[in-house]
Write a protein that binds this DNA or RNA. Structure first.
Length: 832
RNA sequence: GCGAAAGUGGCGGAAUUGGUAGACGCGCCGGCCUUAGGAGCCGGUGGGGUAACCCGUGGGGGUUCGAGUCCCCCCUUUCGCACCA
């Protein structure tokens, strides 16, 4: 055990790295390739968890690998330090959010440092500091000028538990993404960012993100949800109101036998003002609007609706159709109103059957009977031939859409259009611990942006938290009361703060220029590092952070701040860390604590196991016995190196001249094959579990040869080959267990940091086998393995196979019909 | 319901993408060392069979000289989306 004391080893090397400023990156070096390795920055919740450890172990392995390959690597960390937990801690324990947050950062920073991650700590940022968030405000003002930021009132998702509104992305099956409580709808005056202006570009660019996981791309594609169709206005009978509906099937409009509106539709009050049905409608609305999103739109919810008593006119046919309100109509989709075509849409069909509404087929199957509404069991939603559709009869309906859309445009009651599921990003939050929105509301001038020279709008420190009654900032008169920048009259500050996803939109640009006081960052400093080469994080951010940050980059480009369209070249989503098949959670009591583990095994063992136990993109089940296996490997290796170091030729001894042979050759071959295998799997493939096992294999190959050391130079070259082998092991292990690698590197007599050493290069001449195993199959079944010289031709191999008893037995008395020969690999004899 | 991914020993997982299935690690079995060991070292370990051999990558078909890998159907699991007009 005395051969390996992780605590001492790790402390020592961390101190030396730090003193040498090993991971510091100053100016960009024009002679080297720049590699930007980025991991999603953590929220400082208190302590590191195993998910962090895995994320950062992956990133550090890749970063160190690229460094050793001679690239200039930027590897940085920071803190996503605005957010609800800090505020909740203030409410529950009376601790100031700022203090609570900074203490957590201090704790977690030291945990990260104990892991020996190669970060440039000089570039560390925390988003909750005014030096950072002032630029959030600056960006907001620029967007306000360009009309990207705007204010409007809209029904929004409200989380009672977080006491704030949520963006659509932050609602997961009707529940809050953060606290999992049900989400309700409420009407709010809010600041929005016009992300929808970028919807098409966000969608189009997905094709170019070839090194992003297919899964994330398709999630974003679905999230953006482009759909092509037409907007048609239905005039309300006996009123000036027009109801706009969006449809992707304008070809079925002659079959529209009623309209259905979402309960939130803004025209409903006007529609029902004077009708006899008013009471019933209002009761229905009250009931609908009181329910939260989750069960209102749950799959199981039965279709329900109520007739408004009003009729609309189908602009194509002139037919009067009833206007209903339906619980299946989504307010966020299209215009919140649909034309219902029961014959050709399943939902409309179910609704029509339930309420006895007309079902009128207007599409005939291409080769089939016309539909009979009396006997139909479901909607016919395929394309076909138009019928009962006036002048459009006989058209194929796929083409009819185009024609009918044009017809609507020509007659001024509709137009062909594209809609997106993606909605503008509501960023106002009724919370304290976030970036204050830099706007002053003036009774005369309206909302006015705070002038740049008055930034940052600082978050007041003296604050009382009750957890009730809306935004805490609204109760701080010294914050609220101010004067209008435009007319100097008395005015009030906006008391909302920004969604914390704003913070994470651009933090990795700030890393390049973290102390710039004049602008968010200087693109001239930053440009050669962009786009980010590799971005590692959890897949849970696929439709939130990763869409917002892409949008932000485009917005910055349009502001002239950057000249890239997409921020991230390659995205890698790591899998979750589980225990006993379950997600680690306090309630389940299966949380493992990184500090405990580091104390027991050392950071290197923890890092090694995190990477060894599963491919990084898959789930990882934390398994104590497996950790011990990794620890055992390191201990054994340390002991071996300690024992043999003095028997090896001095470090730097030149390679012996002449051919090597026997075990020496085998060892050198294995060494170089391992270099190739580790390099390939660490770099392009990022299968980080393979390199670890390859290194273990190499050690297993070398160990039995050690007993032949100590007899002086026997002319075999073996001692030199062993030095090469162990130095290679140390080098290859550096990305995985860096302190350990430094330590054995030093014990092998090297003076400079292994972290600064060059990555080994596999020598082709040494990798090649001179003897190979050729598998002999007879009719596809394995019958023999022959050891032959590499490169033998078909005839030689065949002759050797015929001589083999195990093969000959199967050839006896049969006719050889065909011979398949894969050089150096396989010989398949087909007999019959 | 729709979409995607995955299914390989007792377990985590390999297989350089159509050519020796089970690398590496865990666990287990045997041996050595030891007063003792939850330490260390050596050996074994997919299943069946005394053996020659046979069977084996969720199930069933297919393509091929040859399939864990390719094609079709089905089952299971996980993850996304879920009335998107």
């Amino acid at each position: 055990m005395s051969d390996y004391d992780p605590m001492a080893v790790e402390a020592r090397w961390q101190a030396r790295w730090d003193r040498a400023g090993l991971f510091r990156v100053d100016d960009c070096d024009p002679d080297r390739k720049q590699y930007y390795c980025l991991e999603m920055l953590p929220y400082p919740s208190g302590k590191l968890h195993m998910g962090h450890v895995r994320n950062y172990a992956i990133g550090d392995a890749v970063a160190r690998f690229h460094r050793m390959q001679g690239e200039q690597v930027l590897h940085v960390i920071g803190w996503d330090s605005f957010g609800l937990p800090a505020e909740n801690a203030a409410i529950q324990k009376g601790e100031a959010p700022r203090r609570w947050t900074l203490e957590n950062i201090a704790t977690m920073r030291s945990q990260l440092q104990r892991l020996g991650l190669g970060y440039d700590w000089n570039r560390e940022i925390a988003t909750c500091l005014p030096e950072y968030y002032r630029w959030n405000q600056w960006f907001f003002l620029r967007m306000l000028e360009k009309g990207i930021a705007y204010r409007t009132s809209r029904p929004l998702n409200w989380c009672d538990s977080c006491n704030t509104v949520l963006a659509n992305e932050q609602v997961v099956s009707g529940r809050c993404w953060r606290c999992d409580s049900p989400v309700a709808r409420r009407q709010f005056e809010q600041w929005f960012l016009k992300i929808t202006d970028y919807a098409q570009e966000l969608l189009d660019n997905l094709n170019g993100l070839e090194s992003w996981p297919e899964k994330v791309r398709s999630m974003q594609q679905n999230w953006i949800g482009r759909s092509e169709g037409a907007e048609v206005a239905f005039a309300v009978d006996g009123s000036d109101l027009k109801i706009r509906v969006f449809t992707t099937r304008i070809d079925t409009i002659y079959g529209a036998t009623y309209l259905a509106l979402a309960a939130e539709h803004p025209d409903i009050p006007e529609l029902i003002r004077d009708v006899a049905e008013r009471k019933a409608v209002q009761a229905f609305l009250d009931e609908q609007l009181a329910r939260n999103l989750e069960d209102r739109f749950a799959d199981t919810a039965e279709k329900q609706g109520v007739f408004t008593g009003r009729y609309a006119v189908n602009p194509f046919s002139g037919e009067k159709v009833p206007i209903w309100i339906g619980n299946f109509v989504l307010t966020d989709v299209g215009s919140g109103a649909i034309m219902s075509v029961p014959a050709h849409d399943e939902r409309d069909f179910a609704f029509a059957r339930k309420y006895g509404l007309t079902i009128r087929p207007v599409v005939r199957p291409v080769d089939g009977e016309p539909l009979d509404p009396a006997t139909m069991e479901g909607a016919f939603s395929d394309y076909g031939i138009a019928c009962t559709s006036g002048r459009f009869d006989g058209l194929h309906t796929e083409a009819a859409g185009e024609v009918m859309g044009r017809h609507a445009e020509e007659h001024g009651f509709g137009k062909r259009t594209v809609t997106y599921r993606l909605k503008d990003w509501g960023i106002s939050r009724q919370r304290y611990w976030g970036t204050p929105i830099p706007v002053i509301h003036c009774p005369d001038c309206g909302p006015v942006g705070v002038p740049d020279d008055q930034l940052p709008v600082l978050l007041p420190e003296e604050i009382e938290f009750s957890g009730e009654g809306g935004s805490p900032l609204a109760r701080v008169p010294s914050f609220v009361e101010t004067s209008c920048p435009s007319c100097q009259g008395p005015a009030r500050r906006d008391t909302d703060t920004m969604d914390t996803f704003v913070d994470s939109c651009w933090y990795y640009f700030r890393y390049l220029d973290p102390r710039n006081g004049d602008q968010p960052f200087d693109w001239e400093q930053a440009r050669s590092w962009f786009p980010v080469d590799l971005y590692i994080g959890g897949v849970e951010h696929a439709t939130m952070h990763l869409i917002y940050t892409r949008f932000w980059t485009m917005m910055m480009r349009d502001l002239g701040l950057v000249d890239i369209d997409e921020p991230v070249l390659r995205l890698f989503t790591q899998g979750m860390v589980n225990k006993d098949g379950f997600k680690m959670s306090k309630s389940r009591g299966n949380v493992v604590d990184p500090d405990d583990l580091i104390e027991r095994y050392g950071a290197d063992t923890i890092r090694l196991f995190s990477l060894f136990a599963a491919p990084p993109d898959r789930g990882l089940d934390w398994n104590e016995a497996g950790v011990e296996g990794c620890h055992r490997f390191l201990t054994r290796l340390a002991r071996t190196v300690g024992r043999v170091a003095s028997h090896l030729p001095a470090s730097g001894t030149p390679e012996p001249m002449g051919e090597c042979n026997g075990d020496t050759l085998l060892l050198r071959r294995k060494t170089h094959q391992t270099i190739a295998r580790v390099t390939f799997n660490l770099g392009p493939r990022m299968h980080l579990n393979i390199p670890v096992s390859a290194i273990m294999e190499l050690v297993n190959t070398a160990t039995p040869l050690l007993k032949r050391l100590g007899g002086g130079d026997d002319g075999s070259g073996l001692p030199w080959a062993l030095r090469e082998c162990f130095e290679t092991v140390a080098l290859l292990l550096t990305p995985f267990a860096p302190h350990f690698a430094e330590d054995i590197w030093e014990r092998l007599g090297n003076r400079r940091f292994i972290s600064d050493a060059a990555w080994p290069v596999a020598r082709q001449d040494l990798m090649e086998e001179d003897e190979v195993t050729v598998v002999v199959q007879v009719n596809g079944k394995l019958r023999a393995r022959l050891t032959v010289a590499a490169g033998v031709d078909r005839e030689v191999a065949l002759a050797a196979a015929r001589e083999d008893e195990g093969v000959a037995r199967y050839l006896d008395g049969k006719q050889l019909r065909k011979v398949i020969f894969v050089p150096d690999k396989l010989l398949n004899l087909v007999v019959g």
